[in-house]
């Protein structure tokens, strides 16, 4: 989780990702930052995030992103 928070901060500095629960609805992450994030996540966690995974439920909070990573790591 710490590693994920670090990546999130590198893509979008100045946001408290541990607290934010509405990253998509509050427009903290948009399609540009999501793609920047995905590029990092794919590399760091050795997973393959596809366009189908890019839905609000998977990116609404750091916790949701972490759950998606865990799921993709298992696949």
């Amino acid at each position: 989780m710490e590693q994920l928070i670090e990546i999130l901060n590198s893509v979008k500095p100045g946001v408290d990702f541990k607290k934010e629960q509405n990253l998509i609805e509050d427009h903290i992450l948009d399609s540009l930052t999501i793609v920047m994030l995905v590029a990092q996540l794919n590399d760091e966690f050795d997973i393959e995030i596809t366009p189908l995974d890019i839905v609000p439920e998977n990116f609404k909070s750091a916790e949701a992103i972490y759950k998606m990573i865990e799921r993709l790591e298992e696949e």
Binding site: V38, A39, T50
Partner: peptide, 14 residues
């Protein structure tokens, strides 16, 4: 956008 940016060549570019 997602199709191009998440494709393998673009991920390698990253």
């Amino acid at each position: 956008f997602y199709a191009v940016s998440l494709s393998k060549p673009f991920m390698n570019l990253s």
